[in-house]
Design a protein around this nucleic acid. Sequence first.
DNA 1: CACATTATTTGGTCAGACCAAATTGGTCCG
DNA 2: CGGACCAATTTGGTCTGACCAAATAATGTG
Lengths: 242, 242
Amino acid sequence: MSSSNTISHEIAAILRDEILQQRYRSGERFPSERDLAARFDASRGAVREALSQLEQLGLIRTQPGGARVQSVKSASLAVLGPLMALGDYPDPLLVDQFLQAFSVLTAMTAKNAVVAASPEQLIQLKKLVAELAAEAEDFEAMQPHWRALLEAMSAIADNLVVRLIGNDLKAQFVDQMIELGIRPDLRAGSIDKLLSSLRVSLNKQDGELASQAMQDHFVELREAVGEALRFRADELSIRVAN
Amino acid sequence: MSSSNTISHEIAAILRDEILQQRYRSGERFPSERDLAARFDASRGAVREALSQLEQLGLIRTQPGGARVQSVKSASLAVLGPLMALGDYPDPLLVDQFLQAFSVLTAMTAKNAVVAASPEQLIQLKKLVAELAAEAEDFEAMQPHWRALLEAMSAIADNLVVRLIGNDLKAQFVDQMIELGIRPDLRAGSIDKLLSSLRVSLNKQDGELASQAMQDHFVELREAVGEALRFRADELSIRVAN
DNA sequence: CACATTATTTGGTCAGACCAAATTGGTCCG
DNA sequence: CGGACCAATTTGGTCTGACCAAATAATGTG
């Protein structure tokens, strides 16, 4: 998947996953380029391009004399997507950690967006909230609107740092969830509460309220996602048992 | 600097900075590999390895027929370090955005660390706070202890996502600040207030308090850093004027 | 002028070669 | 026997030149 149909990307993806699966101990010598070329039946150039990508991800460090594997903990954020996509289903702990980090950043974005929005932008946000409300029943149908709202807020808040963090995470995460058919079962009224709080915060231009509403919503979302993943894990282990 | 003494890294660094400086319009065709090889008097292989890195950073997208420049807004977080290091001094707005994002993540980490800490870890944290207090007068001398405290909290909170985000940012940012001699002038008592709040939060194991203390501290830090950067900007423009 | 076809450019890959740095292994000496 | 020194080997870094397939640009044709 996502191998981008070139040999070097394929090799990079395979090696990346092997490292993320802890198949090499941190600090251990990585196979030599010539060995890898033989293993993948590719030229050394292709292998070198793959290693160049792994190095950019912070997964290996190359030196004349040999490359060495680095700790995943010291890698770049860009490994998170592949890391979540490793097993049959994402590691619940990792997903929760992601949602927690995403939560505070989203809350911050909401606050800044509401405070910084021009009158026109406030109207736009209200419109997006209304559109979201119209589809609040179906989790999956809601996603595009949800994402549009976050995108609009992100654009208004205009924090490049947060935007870049989002790039490395958002799409990969949400897409994977949907692809796996994991649909968190939010408590009835949870969305309504969020939306009504957002409406009020937009009317009063109250950033704190918007922030708090997001935080509260994510608390519930984290719980629901955790529940869905646990259910999924059981389902899988049952299937394996048969 | 940081060109890692290999040709391909040097080329990658130069092209990266050119893209970050908006010297190419987003969507524009990037020079061909053969042209770049001629320009840098290098082999096509070396250029390809450089482009491979740029692609991993999300700055370009390559296809048979030609590579195209992508919007910085859609790049990977790993470009932030280079982005801040571009001009003579960092863009104050970007620094503030960074600090704001770092603020909420740090507050979250502090909260989780305080809540999750074992008795031994609480003692360790208290010790680190005490060591920090001992050097609270000198901003520069304080940094190693400050970083040690954050590192310890990060280890206890054990959120891989936040850790990875930190990897792409922390070191580069702080180092650059110090290197440029930018020393934010924190209000007297600001540090004391933070430290005493932290002490209380550790004693009561009150996560919310720790979080709030961090947030408050960062508000002041952001102001002080902004002030220091404005001063620095004036200094530079005076020097240029002469 | 619109469209289909050809020619050219460009990225992707391969092969073989050379250099310099790092590692390895052996040797010599204390 | 142990440690320090030195050569042989491994390994990454780079270059040259070549071929293919996809995308683009140029061309000719209706």
